[in-house]
Every structure is written in structure tokens, then in C-alpha cells.
Design a protein around this nucleic acid. Structure first.
Lengths: 129, 129
DNA sequence: GCTTGACTTGGAGTGGACTCCAAGTGATAT
DNA sequence: ATATCACTTGGAGTCCACTCCAAGTCAAGC
């Protein structure tokens, strides 16, 4: 697959795909004789993984390290597991923050909905905004 | 309260607190005769709200608009509700992405844990990484 | 009355993650 | 064979959200 095809398939710009490869977030992609990128299934799987991880906010740095570890063979299995476990913990914490904010938004939207009917904002605490 | 006290209370740097005020993410804070910020309960509530929203990734832009609307009185209640509803939707979508990634991390960590025992990585699909 | 230290301002600098650009190459279409 | 067009590279530019800095002010302590 060409870079344009992969770009469409995963909705990532060709620039982003080249950038990911350049910084080592995915392993080097195979080339045709003339040097044009030719993505195979493995490359596509890496792209898909990178997109998934990035969409959840896993930092580029961690993904670069993960990619580097996978290319060093089976001695890095424990290191990879730890890396992913660390990121999972951070992700879980972020989601907990977001859950709190979501509940707060629900509360505020509820107050605003009532206010649209009654014309009065009735916060539990006077100081809330 | 002084900026240093508020900074400690909410674990945000004085620079960030000044920055938030400067860009209008919170309403202007009262000053002493000599121009020093003196945070009251309302200002603290704004800081706390800003921190909560930012920790969930709600964009600065949206919070600035929300802050501006609250300062324009009750005619902006519907606008405020819509703004919060939009942000809630985006937040929910982000959390859904993160949930998927979390499950994927769980799966991969599980595979790595098995590999630590057996020495073999057993992905469901050969192409996964 | 002078030093200290926390505060003030506006503006510059940083880091993360792209995103764009200029200059060049190579395969296909006319 | 020449034009077109997607591709290549390295490097510069952008955007967001801070974060830092220089220069100055002010109240309190010695």
C-alpha cells in the first residue's frame, strides 16, 4: 500500500505517517526500488496501534520506546510489559479525572436546564459558577 | 488569600494562576490597594472549576467563552448550557477512545504476562505487535 | 532609610505533536 | 521526450498551554 492509501485507511495525514516513522514510533516501512514507501500488513498494524494509543493520549515518547523494545527481541518482554503497565496506570488516572469532570458537567447542565424553565440558577453552593 | 496560598491550595503555579486570569479563563481577581491579588471564595471557586475542567482536557478556548458568558448575566444561560453540552459530548467521545485503548492495553499486558512464564508471545493475530 | 522578599506587568521561551514547505526524483500518460 | 503527479528528504513553522524572565513596585523588618 502507498502512503496515500494508508493515509485514507487510517485517517492520518501522509505527513503524520512519515513523521511517525521518522521519529521511530513505528519501525521502518519497506520501500520499492525507487524508494517509495510500500506498507505491508505489519506496518499497517503498527500504524493502527499508534493511532489507537495516540488517540488515548499515550505520549509519543512511550510509544517510541515500546517500538524500540519490540525491535530488540524477546529479552525486552518484561520491559515492554512494565512500560505498558505504567501507561495503563496513567490512562486509568486520566479517565478517573475525566469521569469526575463529566459528572460535574452533568450537574451543571442539569442546573442550566432547570434555569431555562424557571429563569433561576440554583447552585447547591452559592459560590459555584 | 494571596496568590501563593491559592497556588498551594490548588497545586497550580502562580504563573498559571496569573495566566488564567490574563486570558479570561477566570474573572478578574480583587486587588489590595497596592495592586496585589486577594482571592476571595468566588475566585477560588473559579480556580477550582478551571483546574477540574483543564485536568479533563476541556480546551482553554471553551472555558474562556464560558467565563465570558457568565459575566454577561442571565440571558446567556442557554448559550452556557449548549457550550457545556458540546464539551460533555467531546469528553464522552474521548473517554470512549480511552476505554478502547485501556482494553487493548489490558490484552497486551496479559499476553506479555503469559510470555514471561512461557517465553512465547501469543498474539491472536500474527500481525499484532 | 535601606534591604529583603513577595508581588506586579508584558513579553519571550519551552515542549509536545504535528503540519507545511522547498527542492528534488522517478514512474506513468500524451 | 516532456509534462504531470505522487512521492522523497530535511528543515522550518504552527498551535496549545503553559512557564520563565526582566524590570519595577511596595510593605515590613532591622
Amino acid at each position: 500500500m502507498t502512503i496515500t492509501e494508508v493515509s485514507k485507511k487510517y485517517d492520518l495525514s501522509p505527513d503524520t505517517l512519515r513523521y511517525y516513522e521518522r521519529i521511530g514510533l513505528i519501525p521502518p516501512v519497506k520501500r520499492t526500488k525507487s524508494g517509495v514507501r510500500d506498507y505491508d500488513e505489519v506496518s499497517c498494524a503498527w500504524i493502527e496501534l499508534a493511532k489507537c494509543m495516540r488517540s488515548a493520549g499515550i505520549p509519543i515518547e512511550a510509544l517510541i520506546e515500546y517500538c524500540a523494545l519490540t525491535q530488540q527481541g524477546d529479552e525486552t518482554i518484561s520491559a515492554r510489559k512494565e512500560l505498558l503497565t505504567d501507561e495503563r496506570k496513567k490512562l486509568q488516572e486520566k479517565m478517573d479525572d475525566m469521569q469526575k469532570t463529566l459528572e460535574r458537567l452533568n450537574y451543571k447542565i442539569d442546573i442550566y436546564e432547570k434555569a431555562e424553565v424557571t429563569g433561576v440558577l440554583s447552585w447547591d453552593k452559592e459560590k459555584d459558577v
